[in-house]
């Protein structure tokens, strides 16, 4: 998956939790929870949604690394089966 594919998957999952967001206004480098009203339940449902969609299990210990949309996409890219792409080695 490309960065844009993964980003689209993340945004689509986010919209299931927070249908009111306008995806065109999301900024990749700004903390996600400053842009979208997500409580801890929403966050967990969001991560479960990512797991269901991309089959990546995100341990609780890693939550702190996942602040921005860019963080999430990079984290998922390193853990999603890549076809013809070198692993980023994270």
């Amino acid at each position: 998956m490309t960065y844009l594919d993964l980003r689209a998957a993340v945004v689509a999952t986010l919209r299931e939790v927070a249908p009111e967001i306008d995806p065109s206004l999301l900024r990749d480098a700004v903390p996600l929870r400053k842009q979208v009203d997500l409580d801890s339940m929403d966050w967990l449902v969001f991560l479960v949604g990512l797991h269901d969609r991309l089959h990546v299990d995100i341990p609780e210990a890693d939550y702190g690394k996942l602040v921005t949309l860019a963080d999430l996409v990079a984290y998922l890219a390193a853990r999603t089966p890549q076809e013809g792409t070198a692993s980023s080695g994270l």
Partner: peptide, 17 residues
């Protein structure tokens, strides 16, 4: 909680709530 959640798949994790 952190210890209990460490061994759980994401769909079974507990919240402090």
């Amino acid at each position: 909680l952190a210890s209990a959640n460490g061994g759980r798949p994401i769909s079974d994790r507990l919240l402090a709530a």
